[in-house]
């Protein structure tokens, strides 16, 4: 795969634009503004810290096709904490297999939009929703599944999720992986799971 593929770079740039202009970030800024107005200094401080982390990691992610698992997890945990600040009754729990090498590289800027889709669907249903992400070492392989083996893209994040999935498809073009390809129609993605080794 060509590391400086202009299509992939362009996709990453568009993904960054979509993230920085996302309703999520605008709502977070509104929430921080509210903390300042209602003089909840602790909450405002914590939110600024998280926002700063998410913002920097997003910029960094947009400059590279791959990111190490540790950095990605930091990005996701910070995103999850910000969502929790907005909706204190709900929480995203991220479980990571402790046997994973934290330095393993995975495609950057992909998981957050998937996680946001699941989060938004969970908020609407007011129920727990699962997203499992399998990462295998040394291969470009992601697989996603919901509780029933299908994953629905939430319409609010459809554009940026499509960007991420398009990029994954481009990155997978030259590989010989046989069951990591995401197939989809307009509303659903059917994901073929690859068993963890």
């Amino acid at each position: 795969m060509n590391e400086s593929d202009p299509h992939i770079e362009n996709n990453l740039l568009n993904s960054l634009k979509a993230f920085l202009g996302s309703h999520f970030l605008l709502n977070v800024i509104n929430s921080i503004q509210s903390d300042i107005i209602i003089k909840d200094h602790k909450s405002g401080f914590d939110a600024i810290q998280l926002f700063n982390r998410v913002y920097k990691l997003a910029i960094r992610s947009s400059n590279q096709q791959y990111t190490d698992l540790n950095t990605e997890l930091e990005f996701l945990e910070s995103y999850a904490a910000l969502e929790h600040m907005r909706f204190p009754k709900h929480r995203i729990k991220i479980h990571t297999d402790s046997s994973l090498d934290p330095n393993i590289e995975i495609p950057s800027f992909v998981v957050q939009s998937l996680l946001e889709s699941v989060w938004l669907s969970g908020l609407e249903r007011d129920k727990n929703t699962d997203l499992s992400i399998t990462v295998q070492d040394n291969k470009i392989l992601f697989s996603f599944s919901g509780p029933t083996g299908t994953f629905k893209i939430h319409p609010k994040v459809e554009a940026k999720t499509r960007l991420a999935l398009d990029r994954l498809a481009m990155m997978n073009e030259d590989t010989e992986l046989d069951n990591s390809i995401i197939q989809g129609d307009d509303t659903y993605l059917k994901v073929l799971l690859k068993p963890c080794s």
Binding site: N27, N30, S31, S34, I37, I38, S43, M85, R86, F87
Partner: peptide, 9 residues
């Protein structure tokens, strides 16, 4: 739907 948003406004 966001408490913080209501409080701020």
């Amino acid at each position: 739907d966001e408490l913080k948003s209501r409080q701020g406004l």
